[in-house]
């Protein structure tokens, strides 16, 4: 016995073909069944299955091209390590009480993480928009909060995966000790989340790949480069010192580096507060964008 929701059966029941259902039909007519549409799938306050599916889609998207998303950052980061060590290794002996390489390594790991977290969410949304399959994300019963969580979760996962890969490779080359694991973990997650959310905003806002390239070239890369990855901001003269403290990337890298070398350029409390505050603000912006359907819904 077929269940009542069997699609074949529903189709038969609703067919308005006189040859089948009319009086003059020469075929035995089945008793008419009331069309029973499938009942809506019930879920509670939170659509866990939908969220998990969206998250899985975002993660599988980057894992499928792991050469580009995991291996490429490792190569790029090692190149940066090599050129900076070779160019400056002799001239700059110690920074913040540790050798230049030990100072540089955590910053490079952080840079790789944030760039990949940003790239994941922004490219996912932009490509979906350009190709038109964004409807597959907008149509399922997912609330704005679930959309934010699922897509940002994918970006954070890529950021952390890159961070762990790059970190392990660096750890084989450079003597790195973890000094304060809490700060390493907090700053890694907070930075990836921040850049994932920024990537969502960028991905929703951008209409062409040019827009995204401009955002990466003129906003994200300068902020990341000038954040104190490669130098101690103590070095900066006057006004630039103040400006550096307004760059959220500075707090990410500073706190993350503190977790490894036990020395911070800025205030750690300020870093925790700034990162938490910006993340909350960004979350709210992204939530509003999804709720309003900004540039997503007609």
């Amino acid at each position: 016995m077929l269940p009542a929701t069997d699609p074949a059966r529903c189709l038969k029941g609703t067919r308005a073909d006189p040859m089948v259902s009319g009086k003059n039909s020469q075929f035995p007519v089945e008793p008419m069944l009331a069309p029973t549409p499938p009942s809506p799938r019930p879920f509670g306050a939170f659509n866990w299955l939908g969220l998990w599916t969206l998250y899985l889609k975002e993660v599988r998207r980057f894992v499928k091209v792991a050469t580009q998303t995991l291996l490429a950052p490792v190569v790029t980061t090692l190149l940066f390590l090599a050129i900076f060590t070779l160019a400056l290794g002799r001239a700059v002996e110690t920074v913040g009480g540790v050798s230049f390489v030990q100072f540089l390594a955590p910053g490079l790991v952080m840079m790789a993480m944030v760039q990949n977290a940003f790239a994941n969410t922004s490219s996912s949304l932009l490509i979906s928009k350009v190709q038109g399959n964004i409807v597959d994300v907008l149509m399922p019963p997912l609330s704005p909060g679930e959309l934010t969580l699922g897509i940002a979760g994918g970006g954070v996962s890529r950021g952390l995966a890159v961070g762990i890969t790059v970190g392990l490779v660096m750890w084989m080359i450079i003597p790195m000790r973890m000094h304060a694991p809490f700060f390493v973990l907090f700053h890694a997650v907070a930075a990836c989340l921040l850049l994932s959310l920024l990537g969502i905003i960028g991905g929703i806002w951008a209409e062409k790949f040019d827009h995204m390239a401009a955002m990466t070239n003129f906003v994200i890369t300068p902020l990341a480069f000038l954040s104190g990855t490669f130098y101690s901001v103590e070095r900066l003269p006057g006004i630039w010192h103040t400006i550096a403290h307004l760059n959220p990337f500075f707090y990410m890298i500073d706190g993350f580096r503190y977790g490894f070398i036990g020395h911070a350029d800025g205030s750690l409390t300020a870093g925790l507060l700034v990162l938490t505050g910006i993340n909350l603000a960004m979350w709210w912006v992204v939530y509003r964008m999804f709720a309003a359907g900004y540039k997503l819904k007609a």
């Binding site: 900076f84 400056l88 070239n217 300068p222 000038l226 490669f230 130098y231 070095r235 900066l236």
Partner: peptide, 14 residues
């Protein structure tokens, strides 16, 4: 812009 960034970063790091 990338070239200028490299220049700035090396200058500051040195």
């Amino acid at each position: 812009v990338s070239s200028l960034l490299f220049l700035a970063v090396f200058h500051l790091a040195l």
